[in-house]
Simulated assay, not measured.
Amino acid sequence: MHIWAVANQKGGVGKTTTVVSLAGLLADEGHRVLMVDLDPHGSLTSYFRFDPDSIEHSVYDLFQVQGKITQELPKKLVLETGHPNLSLLPSSTALATLERHAQAQGGMGLVISKTLAILWEDYDYVLIDSPPVLGVLMINALAACQQLIIPVQTEFLAIKGLERMVRTLTMINRARKKPVPYIIVPTLFDRRTQASNKSLRSLKDTYEDLVWHSVIPIDTKLRDASTAGIAPSALDSSARGIKAYASLISTLKDPVN
């Protein structure tokens, strides 16, 4: 099982789009893919037409059993998306209450790691959509993942937000036996604008080899796929955005290139 987390401490940078696009492409290749929605806003869950406000069972259930996760529980929570090979562990808005409980209970940082250990033989890839705030949910994502993807919108404020994410990652890596490798992915890039081009240069100057060699462009087909509730590659595999995400997958599978 390969576990990739998508995280940034700023919203609106393309985290959910990145998860859905990568997951859809991996599923198209025949891999068994599980998406995990750890954001209380539930954008990934809503994408596939499940309501995080009213959903009966969700990833929240895993945190309610105080670390005593049975072999059966995770499999009961997984939902099918209608896309072959693509499954979802949905979010619930109840996740927003976790921080209060986490302080009282303690030991909640490895819930997702324990869950994925149970599901290890069931999936080839797991992609985790993280909330844009540092807390128990993001810590779970970073503790569980083998690879971190940090989408960064090519605009000034998003780059400033990246500084917080990198500081957080430095802190988390001190507590891990093996540091989390990460890649910074420029998103929502518009080559026609000076702001996008200037921000991209700034990213590369500041973070150098940590920045992916290409970009994810602005592409209305990605938004159209969201409106339709399907993986973007199922809507139009030839779209610019999908080709860019396919290139990103090649880099993630073979990071030397």
Rank of each mutant, 00 (worst) to 15 (best):
L142N: 07
R49N: 12
A27N: 05
L252N: 07
I69A: 03
I230Q: 08
S196L: 03
H41S: 14
G229H: 07
L142K: 02
S87K: 12
T251F: 13
A104C: 03
R49H: 14
T17P: 01
I150Q: 15
D28N: 11
A94H: 13
R176M: 08
A143M: 13
P40K: 13
I249F: 05
V180F: 04
A94I: 09
G229F: 09
E29P: 07
V152G: 04
P151F: 04
D28E: 15
N173I: 04
E56R: 11
Q105M: 09
S113R: 00
S237Q: 13
V13F: 13
E155Q: 12
N257M: 07
G14I: 00
G135W: 14
E56M: 12
Q153K: 14
S43V: 06
L26W: 14
G67D: 05
S237K: 13
N257H: 10
T154Y: 09
N173D: 10
P132Q: 10
T227S: 11
L88G: 05
Y207E: 01
L77A: 12
A175N: 15
S226I: 05
P84S: 13
I55K: 03
I159Q: 04
V65F: 01
A117N: 12
P217G: 00
L116W: 11
D205C: 00
D124L: 01
G67N: 01
P217W: 00
E80L: 13
P179I: 10
L162R: 06
A96S: 15
F156Y: 08
L157S: 12
E208C: 09
T220K: 05
L86C: 02
V136A: 06
S238L: 08
V20D: 03
